[in-house]
């Protein structure tokens, strides 16, 4: 776990990258999430101060977008698309299978911090439905077997394919 002073230091560097520009708040939050895999409270407080925005306002933005997480997330963030196209192509069954494979529900993280599960609404790849996005990689035409295969690989610590 990163400690508080390190979180503050890294956050200050991120804000500096945008020359302390208020309007870059979302970009700053994205970079913070990239650096720590979630938005630590100390990072939000530090960013607020450095940007000259009230913490309450930063918190509003951080909680508004579902892309931001205020809780630590797993090494692999599994997003199941629940959009209309994916839904009619069986996203619910994929979700069910994924929940059983990872033993967690959407919004949760496995105890070993390896996986987090999330549901999203349309990732813009409807033709490939049902879609599962793991970290930044898109997996189209998902099936039960593919869930086992992909998650199995990640569990072994292998690279995604």
């Amino acid at each position: 776990m990163t400690n508080v002073s390190e979180i503050r230091k890294k956050t200050k560097l991120i804000v500096k990258k945008y020359s302390g520009d208020k309007s870059a708040l979302i970009a700053v939050l994205q970079d913070i999430q990239e650096a720590f895999n979630y938005l630590p409270k100390d990072a939000l407080a530090t960013a607020a101060k450095a940007l000259g925005i009230p913490v309450s306002r930063v918190y509003e933005v951080a909680t508004f977008y579902t892309a931001f997480s205020l809780k630590p997330r797993g090494e692999h963030v599994v997003k199941i698309c629940m959009g209309t196209a994916c839904h009619v192509r069986g996203a619910a069954a994929i979700q069910d299978k994924m929940e059983r494979t990872l033993c967690i529900k959407p919004g949760e993280t496995t105890p070993d911090r390896k996986f987090s599960l999330e549901t999203v609404n349309c990732v813009g790849a409807c033709a490939l439905g049902p879609v599962v996005v793991i970290n930044t990689e898109y997996h189209g035409q998902m099936t039960m077997a593919k869930v086992d295969k992909i998650i199995g690989k990640l569990k072994e610590g292998g690279a995604q394919s």
């Binding site: 009230p54 913490v55 309450s56 918190y59 509003e60 909680t63 508004f64």
Partner: peptide, 20 residues
Amino acid sequence: GVSAIGMSSRGSHKTVGPPF
């Protein structure tokens, strides 16, 4: 002038209060 409170989340989960 202190901005102690704000909204959090959105849609049906939206609430008002101090951050965190």
